[in-house]
Design a protein around this nucleic acid. Structure first.
Lengths: 218, 218
DNA sequence: TTTTAAAAAGGGTTTTTCCCTGTTTATTGG
DNA sequence: CCAATAAACAGGGAAAAACCCTTTTTAAAA
């Protein structure tokens, strides 16, 4: 329940000015919440948290930001301000983006087609229960758990991730080997192992896989 | 300039309720514009335009809608209500999405990081000049024209398009040849020609190119 | 330390990909 | 109509990628 009298403090990190602006106005109409400040990206958030003595309980964090995106920002927040509860904001309900964000410490995930009443509920649940997921997000998570890809597939080792990234460019395996300072034969080993595990027929398959799983961006 | 007295009418087609809601409120604060109605998608827009005798001058049209998306809706509007001026709304400033929308009859393209004053200007320009493009969009368009890809690159022949689509799967060129009922050597000719024209090093490059140019979807 | 497992690298073969070249099939201009 | 030209199509051979199996090195467990 509400800690009587004082309002819970919220910060918004989102550069979509109209959306963020109306979000701020909306939240300030809620009896139990008030917006402390509003940053355009993770960089600005860092500055504000450092300079001013602002210390919000909740941060509404947009994922798609040009300068320092939601993933990086969430990571930084988890390390430096672990007490602040992160609510991720995004247009997309892609399960891997959601999981990526949750792994980085987000306690909630809101799709941007927010209805005012839902936002109020969400903020309250975040304070009271410590977490919130919209119905759509819960569904998405449920689906992704049943098909247990996350367990088998997505625990790549650091070297494998590097290999995947490089293999999704126009580099030859020899070049990849040079960059990773490994023998071309080792690189071929990575390839062979990944192809088998992920049931891929060729490099094109790997690119498509990596894109779908958001391991790489276009 | 403003046609004295009466306000210009605007309709909003966007299912992101908070955004669309604040957009509506914002526009209604403008002296020269008023929102006639608000539809969640193209389907709903069709119904409203048919049933009610609503006839807005401008439609703010979101591209990312679940049911009937911006592209389809714009196409339908151009054919059935060519007098209504379409202003596309989107999060992304991808040049090919912009071009795709403009080709379908949009007179303007607004990125969703709208500032209130800019929206007012944009609506006025749309009425007065007949078109509006934000700075970012103009830049994007300029880039895409100067590097005249659209001319050289994107006039693929039917066979080439088929080849590109198939090559962006896990099929081998031999399999592609079978499907297209051509010799593997001919297919190889397509590959070679495309790689040279598009300056690609390998098939991975082709996949990335095709995705960027929206020739294929994930 | 010995055992075991995993990561890294090699040898050698098959298949795919790549590049240069030639042939056939349309297209066009005289 | 027929030569000239371009395009679509196809071949040979080299290079790279993919594949499979073995060996060394490194790290972790027993």
């Amino acid at each position: 329940m509400m800690s009587k009298g004082k309002k819970h403090t919220v910060a918004i990190v989102d550069d979509h000015s109209l959306f963020a602006g109306s979000l701020e106005k909306l939240i300030n109409t809620f009896p139990d919440f008030e917006v402390l400040f509003h940053a355009k990206n993770g960089q600005e958030l860092q500055n504000i948290l450092a300079e001013k003595n602002a210390d919000p309980e909740i941060i509404l964090l947009d994922i798609n930001m040009p300068v320092m995106n939601g993933f990086e920002t969430a990571e930084w927040l988890s390390e430096n301000h672990s007490r602040i509860k992160i609510m991720a904001l995004s247009m997309e309900d892609d399960e891997h983006i959601i999981l990526k964000m949750l792994r980085r410490g987000a306690r909630g995930y809101l799709l941007k087609d927010i209805h005012p009443e839902i936002l109020n509920t969400a903020l309250h649940e975040l304070i009271d229960k410590g977490y919130y997921h919209s119905e759509k997000v819960s569904e998405t998570l449920l689906n992704s758990l049943s098909s247990d890809e996350e367990g088998i597939l997505l625990n790549f080792k650091e070297n494998e991730l590097t290999f995947i990234e490089l293999a999704c460019s126009e580099m030859t395996y020899k070049e990849i080997a040079e960059i990773m300072k490994l023998s071309p034969k080792t690189i071929d080993g990575y390839r062979q192992d990944l192809f088998k595990r992920l049931k891929l027929k060729n490099r094109v398959g790997l690119v498509i896989f990596a894109l779908k799983k958001n391991l790489i961006k276009l």
